[in-house]
Write a protein that binds this DNA or RNA. Structure first.
Lengths: 186, 186
DNA sequence: AAAAACATTTGCCATTTGGCAAAAAGCAAC
DNA sequence: GTTGCTTTTTGCCAAATGGCAAATGTTTTT
């Protein structure tokens, strides 16, 4: 829990009372590798903070290939604020993971009780989204080797924690190609 | 101006007084094709609404190639809220354009006077960002032809309004390749 | 330790895309 | 219409990536 508080404190101050409130309105959970935290078609209205582990957001394209859209690492939120339409993606634990989860109600409770809660969390979510956009944009318009090197820069801790296939489907190359690319780098 | 109001009304109600306030705190401008609305390194703290025209956001990669990161069409906002770091991209008019511009001060004025202004605009910006992410994610992991077809779907009005080179640099292919792709489609 | 299940690498060849330069087409000014 | 300028298309060949299947390596189960 301190981990989450510390994270939020980067964006704004919190008093003891508020911290306790956050703690009371959340639950800690674990998820095993490969388990889904959210599934396409099902309802998803949780807010979660990753204490430990890596998640990936993925979906299936027209050809039925599994596409990894993004990775989310520890110390980041998983959420879908302003969602209107039904969820069309999967959120899967890429490693064993620990989460702090807020239900919709609990989140609303915090929103109603902590004065700046919405402002703070909006800022957090918006910042994260912008980072995401930045990372994604470098994936187009570079060759596969460069993309892989960029991936290594952006997610330096991930390489040895998740399967090659996830990385390949994130970079938009086949597993074999990525394997060859790796060989040429070292 | 009605165009902007109509747009905002999709997200929330406004009374006559508020509409007038928005009108008073903004200026209408025109930009010619190829002119820059924002440049890397320079300060950019305007909020703008596109009445007419298409803009592209671009930057230069390590090899000096010009990369088109995104297109913004009429009836969308151009803004960089929550910006902390200096701006590293260019925003260029891809066609002759008309804008409604708010300065930082004017925006703040609206934020202070219109109760829900921040909530509304946060929602607008966030929604736009999410769309952007969605569009971008389909650009990785599909072959060039599919990417072009997707571009046509997502930006159906753009094909004949902007040069091929912009589209190519958005799709991450060379001009020649895109030209060949076009030939094969028709 | 052996077997089974899964993940990664490799070989072979087909396909796609890039690089470069020339040709063709489109557009604006005169 | 002609001239210059820019954009788009094309040809030729090289390089990058994909597809498939077999081989190798790793992990898990028994």
């Amino acid at each position: 829990m301190e981990q989450l508080i510390e994270y939020i404190l980067q964006f704004s101050n919190l008093n003891t009372q508020q911290i306790e409130l956050i703690s009371k309105n959340s639950v800690e959970t674990e998820l095993h590798k490969d388990e889904y935290f959210a599934e396409a078609g099902k309802r998803f209205d949780y807010y979660a903070f990753i204490l430990e582990g890596v998640f990936r957001i993925c979906y299936y394209n027209r050809k039925g290939e599994e596409i990894t859209k993004y990775f989310i690492e520890e110390n980041h939120f998983i959420a879908n604020p302003y969602r209107a339409e039904p969820f069309t993606e999967y959120i899967q634990a890429a490693t064993d993971s620990k989460l702090i989860i807020f239900s919709q109600q609990q989140w609303k409770e915090l929103s109603n009780t902590i004065l700046d809660w919405d402002t703070i969390t909006n800022k957090i979510f918006h910042t994260a989204l912008m980072k995401k956009v930045d990372r994604m944009s470098s994936l187009v318009s570079e060759d596969a080797t460069t993309r892989y090197l960029m991936f290594l820069e952006k997610f330096p801790t991930l390489v040895n924690r998740i399967p090659l296939s996830y990385i390949a489907s994130y970079l938009g190359v086949t597993q074999s190609s990525l394997s060859r690319i790796r060989k040429n780098i070292h």
